[in-house]
Design a protein around this nucleic acid. Structure first.
Length: 565
RNA sequence: CGGGGCGUAGCGCAGUUUGGUUUAGCGCGCAGCGUUCGGGACGCUGAGGCCGGUGGUUCAAAUCCACUCGCCCCGACCA
């Protein structure tokens, strides 16, 4: 490809609207063009890279025995009503009507469609197992698109679905998929770690996410360096520091005046936060729920949602709290009636806590679980945080941020059961098909690759996913010898099957070098009068500042060697 | 949905507070000519804008007011 023919302008100035490095570089390299919030066109360079990523994904999927299909974006809303996910997806679903005023949605994912299709084509356990996948466009009306390709409303996703007669069989495929995912990230040059994850609204058992570790990631990851455990903070469990466990003392009311927050209270009473009980109020599916948790800990809403089996959960408003008869700032589970109380396990790990007195301006000292209050539910609903101990090895946990570049999980029968996708087993009994599902966002994966492979000059493409392998830079194209040699290299390398981006423009060396660095092809060949005088050209790797002078006769052999290694 | 910011030439911005001195500027990019050129060269000439939209106030609006549309960031949200 000659640069003079390449569609798309490179930008010298940094777009101010872009805050993440991958977004800035994608724009500056002329790879993407924004149409509206979270909606982008992929220009030639981007598409070349995306196709390479897709092909790696496709190869790895095919190796597991998965079969490629293509499913529609246009989906009848009834399917989503049947699975119960029309409400679960909420506003993220794009709705539309056809000319007969039939309600349709644009597919945000394909569990429903694939399950419907599987159900129509499976009768017996003898038809199982199989895995289907597609590389297809998803549409989600995200509340807030951001970061260029990192969170968008229309995107390409590889989604795979496996169908089984038994849990054991699902386990087998699940492991295969995990391995395929690891292969994919390795081949794409993206270091990604696998962590424990929450399976989200769909439910299901095992769930793992693949994360690219980067500060701009949207997720918080809890990591144990001791045993290698990693988990999304939504899911992570940990051992919290222990509060003192002295023998129980008699309960005692104490005036605390305007000291309401845990911070004010601990300063006023000169006690550590872990000696207090904090009350937090949530609004779960229309009712106010009273949460009790040790003062030094925070509520993990994902865990809480799961414990409550709530479809909708948010912090209660001041108004709702008041209506529920709670005295905010002095609220306490002690003596409370007529409201659901959920306590975190931490209320058991200590004694003689300070809690509210349900009386403005007062708190109670020496409050103890069981003796002084009980809860309707007691469970782990606390957020794990850096410094906590690992539940597996006891090591100290730390946190980092990550970008989700893949998600695998065991769906089980949550969709097939609702859609009536059944098979008959050996004993002729009908049972819902057991499913697994596995997704990778292709565009986001490319953004993650750029995010983790760049310098201040531009992108540094891993060889496997670079739009072109070689940047060919002739300097002084008014020099006939230079042009002749460059043309010959271009032809020679192209004939050998290499992808060459040929900078045939009449531009100064600085411009060409800077563009080559910005676009980030792994290998650069410079042809100039200076090196031709010595019968040689310069070959330089993008990730190595040192260029190598190579005799013309050896140039192609050298390129071969570098690209093979 | 809550909070913040922004919409002026293809891109990056100034001008808006205090309406008139602007025929709306600047830098980059773009077109033509010439000189250059091993890390984003220079000179000359030139093209390009209903100042996001609508309505109002005024003798006069990029500038003031109202409404509206869009974009970005934080949060909520997010298989």
């Amino acid at each position: 490809m000659r640069i003079s023919q390449l569609f798309g302008k490179r930008l010298r100035e940094i777009p101010t609207d872009a805050d993440t490095e991958s977004h800035r570089l994608l724009l500056r390299a002329g790879m993407i063009c924004q149409l509206s919030a979270g909606v982008y066109s992929y220009m030639p360079l981007a598409l070349r890279s995306l196709r390479k990523i897709e092909n790696i994904v496709r190869e790895e999927m095919n190796l597991t025995g998965a079969q490629e299909v293509q499913m529609p974006s246009l989906q009848p809303v009834e399917l989503w009503q049947k699975s119960g996910r029309e409400t679960a997806m909420g506003q993220a679903l794009f709705h539309l009507q056809d000319r007969k005023e039939r309600d349709l949605v644009l597919g945000p994912t394909h569990e429903e469609v694939v399950t419907d299709m599987a159900g129509r084509n499976v009768q017996s356990y003898r038809d199982l197992p199989f895995t289907l996948y597609q590389i297809q466009t998803k549409m989600r009306d995200e509340p807030r698109p951001r970061g260029g390709l990192i969170r968008v409303r229309e995107f390409t996703m590889k989604d795979a679905y496996s169908f089984h007669a038994s849990e054991e069989d699902l386990d087998f495929t699940y492991k295969q998929m995990v391995q395929a995912y690891k292969n994919i990230y390795r081949r794409c040059g993206l270091p990604a770690i696998m962590i424990e994850a929450d399976s989200g609204a769909i439910g299901g058992k095992d769930s793992q996410e693949f994360m690219a570790v980067t500060d701009i990631g949207e997720d918080e990851i809890i990591i144990c360096d001791g045993c290698g455990m990693g988990a999304n903070v939504e899911k992570a469990v940990s051992i919290k520091p222990k509060a003192s466990c002295n023998p129980m003392l008699d309960i005692e009311e104490v005036a605390t005046f305007e000291h309401k927050s845990i911070e004010q209270l601990t300063t006023f009473l000169k006690i550590p936060a872990m000696q207090t009980l904090k009350a937090v109020f949530y609004y779960a599916d229309g009712v106010v729920v009273f949460i009790v948790i040790r003062g030094d800990l925070d509520v993990n809403e994902v865990k809480l949602k799961k414990v409550l089996h709530a479809a909708d959960l948010r912090l209660a408003s001041d108004e709702e709290v008041k209506c529920a008869g709670i005295i905010a700032g002095a609220a306490s589970p002690v003596g409370l009636r007529g409201i659901k109380i959920v306590a975190d396990e931490s209320v058991l790990s200590g004694a003689n806590f300070v809690a509210g007195a349900n009386k403005a301006g007062y708190h109670l000292k020496n409050v103890n679980y069981l003796r002084d209050f009980t809860a309707d539910i007691i469970a782990d609903i606390a957020k794990a945080k850096a410094g906590d101990a690992c539940t597996i090895c006891g090591g100290t946990l730390r946190t980092m941020r990550g970008m989700e570049v893949g998600h695998v999980f065991k769906l089980g029968i949550s969709i097939s059961g609702k859609l009536g996708a059944n098979f008959v087993d050996e004993s002729d009994a009908p049972r819902p098909i057991i499913m697994g599902c596995y997704g990778i966002g292709i565009g986001r994966l490319m953004a993650a690759i750029i995010e983790l492979n760049h310098d201040d000059k531009g992108i540094i493409w891993p060889m496997s996913v670079a739009p072109f392998q070689i940047a060919l830079c002739p300097l002084y194209v008014d020099n006939a010898a230079v042009v002749k040699q460059a043309d010959s290299l271009y032809k020679g390398l192209t004939n050998l099957g290499y992808e060459v981006l040929y900078d045939d423009r009449i531009e100064s060396p600085g411009v060409k070098f800077n563009d080559a660095d910005l676009l980030g092809m792994p290998l650069r060949i410079t042809v100039s009068p200076r090196s031709l005088e010595k019968g040689s050209v310069e070959i330089k790797l993008r990730n190595n500042p040192q260029a190598e002078v190579v005799a013309l006769d050896n140039a192609i052999a050298k390129v071969k060697a570098l690209l093979a290694g």
